[in-house]
Deep mutational scan, measured.
Amino acid sequence: MADQLTEEQIAEFKEAFSLFDKDGDGTITTKELGTVMRSLGQNPTEAELQDMINEVDADGNGTIDFPEFLTMMARKMKDTDSEEEIREAFRVFDKDGNGYISAAELRHVMTNLGEKLTDEEVDEMIREADIDGDGQVNYEEFVQMMTAK
């Protein structure tokens, strides 16, 4: 299944994987998964984290390695993001709930994920998604960005 991913997608997933893999040992533990999910405003229980890991832990060693992570991402993409997942993601970014993602809100979430971005990089990300040019990202623009192939 992971063989249907483009090189660009694999590179993006590698970057995402390293955000989860806090200690850089090449595997994601339940603790690391929990840290990232909490930084995104989720509050999973230990059991939920274990279930999430077990779902993709092909070799049964209790952690997720990069090939397992790729399989999980490929699977998720095949079920292409349901509207509800996209709306949920939008809410994570839209901290003040005004229906727009500002540069400050984007920077806040990315920083929580451990991504240190310059102001230019954040502005560039907003510009790429900002179709109507108002300097922020509304829900429609967010959907376009998330579903762009």
Rank of each mutant, 00 (worst) to 15 (best):
D134C: 08
K22T: 09
E120F: 14
D94E: 03
K31G: 09
G60C: 12
E121P: 04
K149T: 07
Y100R: 09
L113E: 03
G133P: 01
E55T: 00
I131D: 00
G133T: 07
Q50W: 07
L49Q: 02
E120R: 01
T111L: 10
F66K: 07
E115K: 11
F90G: 08
T118F: 10
D21W: 13
I10P: 14
D65N: 14
D57Q: 08
G99V: 08
I64H: 05
A89P: 00
I86R: 03
F69R: 01
D96Q: 15
K76M: 03
T118A: 12
A2C: 06
P44A: 13
I131M: 12
G41F: 15
D123W: 07
D134I: 02
N61S: 13
D21E: 14
E55K: 10
V109A: 12
D79W: 14
N54R: 05
L5M: 11
E46H: 06
Q136H: 09
A16I: 14
L5F: 00
V56L: 11
L117K: 01
D59Y: 08
K95V: 04
M37A: 15
M125W: 01
V36P: 01
D51H: 02
T118I: 12
D79Y: 10
A58K: 01
G97P: 00
M125V: 11
A103R: 13
T63M: 03
F20N: 04
Y139V: 02
F17G: 02
K95L: 04
E68Q: 04
K78C: 13
R38D: 00
M52K: 07
A129S: 12
D96C: 15
E46N: 01
L106D: 15
D51Y: 09
D130K: 01
I131G: 06
M77I: 11
R107E: 06
D23Y: 11
K31R: 11
I131S: 08
K76D: 07
G60S: 13
R107G: 13
L49N: 03
A129M: 08
D3S: 04
I53Q: 05
T29I: 12
R91Y: 15
D134T: 15
A148W: 14
T30A: 13
D23Q: 05
E84M: 01
E8A: 05
I101H: 06
N98S: 09
D3V: 06
L106N: 06
E141R: 07
E84Y: 09
G26Y: 05
A11N: 13
E8V: 11
V109G: 05
L70I: 13
E124M: 03
N61L: 03
E124A: 13
